[in-house]
């Protein structure tokens, strides 16, 4: 036990790099989205435990070109495997294929590219997450006596992000037949959290009559409620906002009445599983039983808010 601990310590400290020490490239969609920080910490923790080197690389703001550059750098470095959250676009598919051609196994997390040749995918059931958000909207509307049709605006990240598309599909599937909903506009924030906040505020200033706001991700949830006065005013005037992603700041918005319901994804598990399962494959050739490794969903509403605020810690990143 002592010898094992000493070996792990030496590997982690970099004092000794074993000949066969694996290097895993972990590529979130961007660095500027704090949603991946849980994955960051847990992936590193898992890498330390497993004695592998973890390279966490991404462009600051998401861009296909930036992610391609990161992928190419990892391929050029000759890493042993790559975990990546992608847009399902041909350029990324090509980069994944080049990695595979170079003997580098690739798995995806968060956002999948099923046809790219990746080994498997780790993430939530995005359709289900959207479905749960839709069902929550229906419940809230019915509780308020709203029969519709309601006007709605949707905020998403990248149009080509398969996970976001699936969330929207689930959302619309859940309300179909249950609530009349007319989508006025879909706002794409390009995975930019700062832009997302601005877009929400601008839209609600211009269109305060909209009834529903559905967020396929938590991009604008990193700021305090007072930083989004239009959103706050709109919500307090009866606007209904539901979305996906749970973290401490998002819970504060729920507490302040800006959001009514959240569906959370377990990014920490995605990070840890991404390292663990890829190392299993690299070391033993062991693959998961299915190509989709699902991590669970969490749900936040006023009913469980106090409990969640005790569980989640503030990130203090914004």
């Amino acid at each position: 036990m002592v010898w094992t601990a000493l070996a792990v310590f030496l590997l982690l400290s970099g004092g000794v790099q074993a000949e066969d020490q694996l290097t895993i490239g972990f590529v979130p969609r961007s660095l500027d989205n704090p949603i991946f920080l849980d994955a960051f910490e847990n992936a590193h923790q898992k890498a330390m435990e497993l004695g592998v080197r973890l390279e966490w690389l991404a462009p600051w703001g998401f861009s296909t070109e930036g992610q391609l550059a990161v992928m190419e750098s990892l391929i050029g470095q000759g890493v042993d495997g790559i975990v990546v959250s992608v847009n399902d676009v041909p350029e990324i598919q090509g980069a994944i294929q080049r990695a595979l051609d170079n003997g580098i196994p690739v798995i995806t997390f968060d956002a999948d590219s099923p046809t790219s040749g990746r080994l498997f995918h780790i993430g939530i059931d995005n359709f289900k997450a959207g479905w749960e958000a839709g069902k929550a909207l229906v419940r809230i509307a019915q509780a308020r006596g709203l029969e519709g049709p309601l006007s709605a605006v949707i905020m998403s990240g990248e149009p080509d992000a398969l996970n976001l598309i699936e969330r929207m599909d689930g959302f619309f599937g859940a309300i179909e037949g249950e609530l009349g909903l007319e989508v006025d506009e879909i706002l794409y924030n390009r995975d930019n959290v700062d832009l997302a906040t601005i877009m929400v505020e601008d839209y609600l200033k211009a269109n305060p009559e909209v009834d529903v706001f559905f967020f396929t991700g938590g991009w604008p949830f990193y700021v305090p409620s007072d930083a989004m006065p239009a959103f706050k005013q709109w919500a307090h005037a009866g606007g209904i906002a539901v979305g996906i992603d749970i973290f401490y700041d998002a819970l504060l918005l729920l507490r302040d009445g800006l959001l009514q319901y959240l569906v959370g994804q377990d990014m920490a598990s995605m990070g840890a599983l991404g390292v663990e399962l890829l190392v299993d494959y690299l070391r033993g050739g062991q693959l998961p039983e299915t190509v989709f490794v699902e991590v669970g969903l969490t749900y936040a509403s006023h009913e469980n808010l106090d409990e969640l605020l005790q569980i989640y810690e503030p990130w203090l990143v914004k």
């Binding site: 500027d32 920080l37 849980d38 960051f40 910490e41 923790q45 330390m48 600051w60 203090l316 990143v317």
Partner: peptide, 16 residues
């Protein structure tokens, strides 16, 4: 100290 636990607020600020 070979730990990145609870490093998120630091690392994110530094990246930013």
């Amino acid at each position: 100290n070979n730990s990145v636990t609870n490093s998120r607020k630091y690392v994110f600020r530094i990246w930013e």
